[in-house]
Each structure stands twice: as C-alpha cells, then as structure tokens.
Computed example of a mutant assay.
Amino acid sequence: MTEDSELDLPRGVALAWGVSADPQRGPKREMSVEKIVDAAVELADADGLGAVSMAAVAARLGYTPMSLYRYVSAKDDLIVLMQESATGLPPAAVREIDGWKERLGELFRAQIEIYLRHPWMLDIPISGSPATPNSSAWVDMTLEALEETPLDAEERLAVTLMVTGHAHWYGAVLAGYSTVGRTTGMTPAQITAREAALYDGLISPDEFPALRRAVDAGVFLSDSDPFVFGFERILDGIAAYIDALAAGGARSAGAAWAVLEDADVAADKKYREAQKTVREAEKALRDAQKHQRQALRDARDRLARHPGA
C-alpha cells in the first residue's frame, strides 16, 4: 500500500495492510491481532465459520471478550483478517512455469486447495473485492501470467476473475462432498455410487429424456472430472481468442450485460409481484406436463395389456 494514501479504510482492511496501529493498552502484552486471528481460524477449521464469535475466540485464548475488542473492534473485521490469513500468498513457483495456460492451471489448483483446507471461507458473504494484501497478490500473479499475451488490461482482469470464480465454485463442490464423507463415513466411490443409484431410480425417459440418456451412458459413474474439463475448455477458448488477436483479428467488443443496471428494477415491488406470477404459471405448466406424461404412460400400459383393444 502506498505511504501517501489517505483512504478511509474499514478497520479490518486497515489491519490487514498494517496501517492501523494496535492499541496501546491491553490485558497482556502476549495478546496481538495475529494471535486472535490464528485462534479464530483454528475454531473455523474445526467447527465452521458459525463457531467463530468474539466470546469463543476469547475463551480459546483465555481472555474476556472485551479484551479482544481493543484489538479487533468487530466480528466483520475479524472475518476479513481470517480470510486474509487463510488465503496466504500464491505459490512463488508459479513464476517458474512456462506458458500462461499452465500458470493459470496451477493457480486454479492452488486456490482449490485453500478451500479444501479452510472450507469455511466458502461461507463468507461476497460483499465486494477483498482488497487485502494476500488477495491482491493472487490477482497480481494471475495478471502477470497473462502479460505476454495480446490481451488488454480489461481482458486480463476478466480472465483472472474467471479463474477465481471457477475455483470458488469447484472448491465449494469438493468441500461439500468432503463434508458428506466426514459426516457419513462414506468413501468418495460410495458417495458417487449412491448418487448414480438415485438418478437411475428417479429419472424417467418420459419426463427427462435427455437426462435419462445421460444416466444410461454412465456419466454419474465416470472417472472424468467435469469441472476440470470445463475449466480446460474455457482456457482453450481464451487461447483461440489470443491466437486470433495475434493474427490481427478484431478485439471483442465486450458488451456489458444489463444485470447490474437492472438491480433497481428487480427490487421494485411490482416487478417482484410480476415475477411471482410468472413462477406460478411455470409451475402450473410443469404440473400439466407431468399429468400429460402420466396419461401417456397409462395409455401405453393399457395398450401393452390389451394390444387388440
């Protein structure tokens, strides 16, 4: 962070950057922001983000909750610091890897490993970009991996956000399956077999024909990883775009979707009521289609029992 910066930083972000001084007084000199954060991370690693409270952290350290507030003034600030600590720095060895695709692949895998070590990070609400040193270091290294490509600054940031977002989603899936394994004692193979059996028993060819064909093809028992496949195909698409730019092709216009611009519209009461009406109509349509499929099955059963009728 630049020395001449006079930003009005939230205390948690300021503490992460080291520009908010520790209090002059405290219960003991052994207390520090770092020890508070370490204790909070240990609690979250063991029992999830919900187990973290100022009282629980204080009890773990042997102090009163009020003692902690002299160092970290709010739980939200503590969560920012926990996220920063758990994120850590990106692996320096990435810079030794040749090729932007290979670098991004390694950064992708490294981010997923963070979520597997600290699955509670996936429960932190997203309220904006985490403008902290370690998080910034990950962005910086990803952007650096793309510097020798013809992508411009906006496109490099877009690719960086894609890597981060895909890692977050894949990390959520893997962490969820890991939790199921711990709580049920099931192995990954057993979890996969159970899910495949559920789909096999529930998905009918009349109601979900394409999904039924996928079930019959054995997709839910496959050893292939659909998330890695998707990530690699995205990288292939970016590579094709880079090749086109290098050959003198036109740059993408990058037209923005109107999602954010429509946020105020989505919050409007009349709009929400209209959306509710649409959902109810869609439900009625699904019910009608379900009855239609059932009638078709019944007719087929009658014809099978009485072919000459």
Rank of each mutant, 00 (worst) to 15 (best):
A217K: 13
Y177F: 11
D123H: 08
L198K: 05
K35M: 08
P91A: 11
S135R: 13
A288D: 11
T142W: 00
Q111H: 04
D216I: 07
L49F: 00
A304I: 06
D243V: 10
A244N: 08
E195N: 12
A92R: 12
D200S: 15
A86G: 05
V139S: 08
V80E: 03
V259H: 03
A253W: 02
E282A: 14
E102M: 02
L107R: 02
E195L: 15
E42N: 05
Q190P: 02
D98N: 07
L198F: 11
P130E: 03
G185W: 00
A131G: 00
Y63R: 09
I112L: 07
A256Q: 13
P133Q: 02
E3T: 14
R103Y: 06
R212Y: 06
A274M: 09
I234P: 00
L260W: 00
R302Q: 15
W120V: 01
D206E: 13
R302A: 15
T149E: 10
Y271S: 11
V94Y: 03
E96T: 14
L68R: 02
E282G: 08
P91R: 10
L89Y: 01
A210F: 00
M162S: 11
A110N: 06
S129Y: 12
G249S: 06
D200R: 15
A266E: 13
L303T: 14
G128D: 12
G105E: 09
D8N: 12
L221R: 15
Y69A: 06
R302F: 13
P90W: 02
D287L: 12
R251Q: 10
F108K: 02
E155N: 05
K283G: 03
P205V: 13
P307G: 09
V159N: 01
L143G: 08
L303D: 10
A44F: 02
G48E: 08
T183N: 07
R117D: 13
A240F: 03
R194T: 13
K28Y: 02
E148P: 01
V72R: 01
D301E: 15
Y71L: 11
W138G: 03
V52I: 14
S20G: 00
A299W: 02
A40F: 06
G254V: 09
S178G: 15
E84Y: 05
A158G: 10
P150E: 08
S5L: 12
A167Y: 05
T164V: 09
Y69L: 14
S129V: 12
T184F: 01
H118K: 06
A175H: 05
D38V: 13
L7W: 04
I97H: 07
G12I: 03
L7G: 01
A299Y: 05
V215H: 06
P188C: 10
D262M: 03
S224V: 12
D225C: 07
R11W: 04
T187G: 04
P10K: 12
G50I: 06
P125M: 11
A189K: 13
A263V: 05
F231T: 06
V215W: 04
S252T: 10
A93S: 12
A258E: 12
P205R: 11
A258Y: 04
T277Q: 11
D4E: 10
A258L: 14
A263S: 08
P23F: 12
A263F: 01
E261G: 04
D200A: 15
